[in-house]
Nucleic acid binder design. Structure first.
Lengths: 230, 230
DNA sequence: TGCTTTATTGTCGTCATGACTAGTTATTGC
DNA sequence: GCAATAACTAGTCATGACGACAATAAAGCA
């Protein structure tokens, strides 16, 4: 890293944490977006985000934004760093580098509108006409792609389900994110064969239409071995 | 993203691009490191890096650092963004956010020492006593872990080989990064079964000890289907 | 009582994989 | 030249994972 550098010679950078907060509500994938109240991009949808404070870590800034928008605490969700975006002209006001994060939520909790935005809403990403503010369409696409890949090799698909879920619910997460249909019987067999993916609660659903489904909860495993191929 | 923000109220952020540049020289994995000439961390190994210029994209800053240190042009290597690191105290001088990149090189080209460093050298990462400057040990570990995972699902292992390579060379890349031994016959069969992974040149090696090996070059595929499991 | 719906279990052929054996083709050292 | 050796490549075989699909289980509903 260069030592011969005078920061005051440069226009300063600002750093933001912007969040791709996803939930799967079959047959839709939804992202939590805010509608911008002020220029630039007034009226456009944008990712929720906030500036990183002078003494704040990048992760803390992401946690804070998540809590501010959803009221959800960190340990109830999965939050991972996605990538950073820093084209010089991505924000017309000043030079801003965005560190993007991906959060996976089980249920679309009631979003909280902030001071700077007049609306926060879960939006079906398929029905989005992609004119998001700044380069947020690119960031959102990266987040969805990351989620699509993660569920193949990790147990993160369970993060889109509640604490207890049926095989059909878990399968619907895969089918929705991948836009495919999976054979219920083979999926069932495969998931149970992966050690630590899910564990039965002993309970079953009731009141539904067909045969009651057994309930499962998340297992201890983080990675799927073998992976669930697409 | 908050509009109610006065950047001048904050100490400014600086943004750097720091590179994990890896090469595989069986049985070692080597990283290109620089020895810092000045404080802080004078005398310590550090990742090569540089500040992102006011009108420079993050990727351009990474490309520039790579070219400055190795003289290697971008299209001869693989360069991908790794992650960003921004603990408030990671640099004692000022608030610096590092966007880390991962570069994969086939051969350890002669490194070029910069103005601010008195030495640039390929270092065996296994023999590194981990007292790198700043949080660079953490970044380096993330880069190695990324490379270890990438070769499982993508064709990037060929990036550690030259333009033409033998099956044994490709296998050695996997064995070195994964610290395992792979059965030569099964590896051979598996690699050839993956469409677009490698394609034969028709040539063979000569001058080596045993039977000459056929030469291959990179195929068109990016992802491995099926993956090469560890 | 059936009929429908959904969940779960079972079967079977095919293909991928790992362990292992055997054969091929060069160089190296008598 | 002629083994001996090294290294690559082909073949075999048992095991296991997977996809397609049939069959059974357990509810609700007419």
């Amino acid at each position: 890293m260069a030592d011969t550098y005078d920061p005051s010679a440069f226009p300063p950078f600002a750093v933001t944490a912007d969040l791709v907060i996803l939930t799967v509500q079959p047959p839709t994938v939804r992202a939590l977006l805010v509608r911008r109240a002020a220029d630039p991009f007034a009226g456009s949808w944008a990712l929720p985000g906030g500036f990183v404070g002078p003494d704040q870590s990048l992760a803390d800034a992401a946690h804070e934004t998540l809590a501010r928008k959803t009221g959800v605490s960190v340990d109830a969700t999965h939050l991972e760093q996605l990538a950073s975006f820093g084209r010089p002209d991505r924000d017309p006001r000043m030079r801003i580098v965005s560190v993007a994060w991906l959060a996976l939520l089980a249920e679309p909790v009631e979003p909280v509108a902030g001071d700077d935005t007049d609306e926060a809403q879960w939006v079906d990403v398929a029905a989005l006409d992609s004119d998001l503010a700044f380069d947020h369409a690119e960031i959102l696409a990266a987040g969805i792609e990351r989620a699509r890949n993660r569920i193949e090799y990790t147990t993160l698909a369970t993060r889109f389900c509640g604490d207890e879920f049926t095989m059909a619910e878990l399968r619907a997460v895969y089918e929705t994110l991948w836009s495919t249909e999976l054979d219920p019987a083979n999926f069932h067999r495969k998931v149970l064969a992966i050690d630590g993916f899910v564990e039965p609660t002993g309970e079953s659903t009731s009141g539904g239409r067909g045969r009651p489904a057994r309930l499962y909860r998340r297992g201890d495993a983080v990675d799927l071995d073998p992976p669930v191929r697409r």
